[in-house]
């Protein structure tokens, strides 16, 4: 555990909580892609199957349970509790175009050809592109609420901090996971355009961020 890893995890947690609270307080999931949230729930489920097989630390186990719990709570709020506010017409990204290639890639390129390892690899690849339905939705409607941009910023920052964590671990521990690093790079790059807009248009009198 190093400072980048910890702040990355906390940034990830902050993103998840921000989104949950936003939906809960406003009683609405307008502008939020339910498809992205389903993908994140799938990501956590397939990655944290090792909760059943191995114990790493109390921190590890509790964070995994919190991430999974919040992911399903978010999906529940969008598709059940506040379903009437869900913007399904604008959430039109075809997720099979992500899940199928990512599944194929996980079977082809993995550390070990076993079910658990392939599912872990699948979750790493899927996470890197799971935000695309959300970004697609924002580009389609042309706007995002400020709180949604905070969510996206924290979510993007998390993987960027993980990249620094991997550089740290390579130098000090000799640890190198090319699958995680490659997917983490792709994931971070997808947020770069958004980061730029978040910083440059994050003015004081801003209510909404327009994306191209």
């Amino acid at each position: 555990m190093n400072v980048f890893r910890l702040t990355g995890d906390l940034s990830h947690l902050a993103a998840i909580i921000i989104l949950l609270l936003k939906i809960w307080k406003s009683r609405s999931c307008a502008g939020i892609s339910g498809k992205s949230q389903i993908l994140f729930a799938v990501v956590f489920t397939t990655r944290y199957l090792d909760l059943l097989t191995s114990f790493i630390s109390l921190y590890n186990t509790s964070m995994k349970l919190i991430y999974i719990g919040c992911a399903y709570a978010t999906v529940y709020l969008i598709y059940v509790k506040f379903r009437a506010t869900y913007d399904g017409n604008h959430d039109s990204f075809r997720v099979e175009f992500l899940v199928v290639p990512v599944g194929g890639l996980a079977v082809l390129i993995n550390h070990n050809f076993s079910l658990m390892e392939i599912l872990w690899t699948f979750s790493i690849y899927l996470e890197s592109v799971a935000i695309l339905p959300q970004l697609f939705m924002i580009s389609k409607t042309g706007e995002a609420e400020t709180i949604t941009t905070h969510y996206l910023f924290c979510l993007g920052l998390y993987r960027a901090l993980y990249l620094l964590n991997w550089i740290w671990r390579y130098y000090f521990e000799g640890f190198l996971d090319m699958i995680a690093i490659f997917a983490g790079l792709v994931q971070t790059v997808l947020y770069c355009d958004f980061f730029y807009l978040y910083v440059t248009k994050g003015g004081k009198d801003r209510k909404k961020v327009m994306l191209p």
Binding site: R5, D9, H12, D50, I56, S57, N60, M63, K64, Y67, H111, N112, W120, Y162, N165, F175, L176, D177, M178, I179, A180
Partner: peptide, 10 residues
């Protein structure tokens, strides 16, 4: 541990 085998990350 072998490369990539230790899944202590989230």
């Amino acid at each position: 541990c072998p490369i990539g085998a230790k899944k202590d990350e989230l």
